[in-house]
Design a protein around this nucleic acid. Structure first.
Lengths: 155, 155
DNA sequence: TTGGATGCAAATACTTTGCACACGG
DNA sequence: CCGTGTGCAAAGTATTTGCATCCAA
């Protein structure tokens, strides 16, 4: 999570312009706890950023990801999801509704290195799959809603 | 990893026809160690299964996955990758070339449950990201090839 | 001023679907 | 024989790209 002045510094260092779109995308992502996808971010941002294009959100997310300022989450859902919290943490993904919750457990940060010949580990993440509290309560009813309702409950 | 007679049994039990396409897709996946995607499987299979359609491969993979006979791997690459080995194991994904290696370590199978209120864990997997032996040796050169060359080196 | 970012629409990549026909059981 | 799977092509999503214009530095 970086402040606006941190971002200015980081972009300046790379000689990349910090546009208000970039600020807006990062800002929106940083203040959300729900790991939105590109389109969810776009939906929120277009109110505040008139004329914003979805393609810009995609480009910006790519840029921020390449700069290491955000995390991309490999979710079983089809859309990529993002997280402005780059500190080591893991995720619990609900296979019914697609919700993603952060998991923090320092024991998960000290996993044994994989015994793959020559493989150079840069990062690792643990993905728990299962049912969130709500979906566990209401079995069946929403299991099929994963893809159809995706953009309605990113929280 | 199931034998042909296991498969017959499993399909009979569900009253689903075990077509030669299904056998072929499963067979191909089972004998490969490289976690191919739908198109990679299709490329291999079309030689042996004349007239096979890519859509059939997709449908079959979906069916096999729903039956729990294969695993779908969430890879940072855009294509879904599959694994006929449904026993608990984890993956090391090369961020440069997209290769996926199996990681087996019993310590990874006893991870602490995530402390997310009400979350019902069904399964969990650890994804290590980094560079495979080859890409670590040849820095830069193939880093950009991930998406363009995807179907050329699924091994 | 100026190189890179943006906005738009079109393109691409991956996956699913609809329908007629084929085939396993 | 019947119900489901298959093959084909077309439709759907998610994401990227080309290009003219705009803006941060």
């Amino acid at each position: 999570m970086f402040s606006q002045s941190d971002l200015k510094e980081l972009f300046k260092r790379r000689r990349m312009p910090l546009t208000h779109q970039r600020l807006a995308v990062y800002g929106e992502l940083a203040c959300r706890r729900d790991h939105p996808g590109a389109e969810a971010l776009y939906d929120s941002l277009r109110r505040r950023v008139p004329g914003l294009a979805l393609a810009t959100v995609y480009k910006t997310l790519k840029t921020l990801h390449e700069m290491g300022l955000i995390i991309r989450i490999d979710s079983p859902a089809s859309q990529a999801r993002y997280d402005a919290d780059v500190a080591a943490h893991h995720h619990a993904v609900c296979t019914a509704c697609g919700r993603i919750a952060d998991v923090r457990d320092e024991r998960l940060d000290r996993l044994p290195r994989p015994a793959v010949r020559g493989f150079l580990v840069r990062s690792c993440s643990v993905n728990f799959r299962g049912l969130c509290a709500e979906c566990a309560k209401a079995p069946g009813s929403r299991a099929a809603s994963k893809s159809r309702n995706r953009r309605h409950h990113n929280g």
